[in-house]
Design a protein around this nucleic acid. Sequence first.
DNA 1: GCGTCCAGGTCTACC
DNA 2: GGTAGACCTGGACGC
Length: 318
Amino acid sequence: MKLFPSFTSEIIPERPYSFELTVRKPTGWALFTPSEIFAEGTLWTATHIDNRLVGIKLRSKGTLDEPTVIAEIFLEKKPNASQLRSINRSVTRSIGASEDLTEFYAMAENDDILKHAVVDLRGMHNTMASTIFPDAILAITLQMTTITRSNQMMDCLLRTYGDVAEFDGKIVHAWPRPDSLASVTPEVLAKMCNMGYRAKHLVRLAKKIDSEGFPNIEELESLTPMEAKKLLLELPGIGDYSADIINPHGGFPIDVWSADVFGQLLFGKEPVDKDKEIQLIKNEGIRRWGKWSWMAFYYVVQDLENLSDRLGVKLRLS
DNA sequence: GCGTCCAGGTCTACC
DNA sequence: GGTAGACCTGGACGC
């Protein structure tokens, strides 16, 4: 779909704000889609906001302590005033511009693990999807397989069922909308993208979000973290780990990989019986970092290589 | 070349 | 409430 220049916003994030660390994480996690393009300090990306395909060009005009982000928005049609406000609000929230890191940093400076990460990654804000569906796709494709195959599944979903945004001389593939996958049979999806048993979960989940009135990301955000998680656990194929990935409040998503990392950091050893020890590691992380558990997880995972050196432990990088 | 194991979880049946 | 076993697939590994 061709998108045209619509409007430009100047966003003033809470300081400190590192544009590059925030929109382009050290681990390579994308802001909205793995297909987005980052070059010479500018990000071209695409997502759905209010069911509308939106092309977004982001660049920094400021510094870590005097940050300004310029967001150029590309749409198929001219938005009305309400749509414009909604897109602005969504982009501002997604790039973590309103997030105040002061309290987290104060806690982290007295934490033997985090005190290193917050120095290494000063100004990195938490980013957020504009809808829950992309994170649900991520969570389901990560389940019980290798990262290589997860990436193959995600790439197929993106290119076969996603929307293509053409704008500013770039082409970016956005994640599929729930209605695009709700109309596909699990058999076709399993065959097309080698998804195996995950296909039926994903199709049922797409139908539930598309037509059964499941709360959107802003509605989940207005609930308490536990209320939001309880609702997410009602989605097909979404268990404790996946709900912690999708929850807009953040969680402490411990899987077999992060269990090795946080087992080393919190108990000095990787778990032997992962099934049993994952819950212990999760409980200890939540006990130690409380409401900042997600930010702690986020900073640690983005800083593994440095932390391995600084703490003198061998952390499994991926 | 072939068989087996296992990987960034979740669901269900059974106790 | 707790837990064992099934679930798609393909790469790695041993033989």
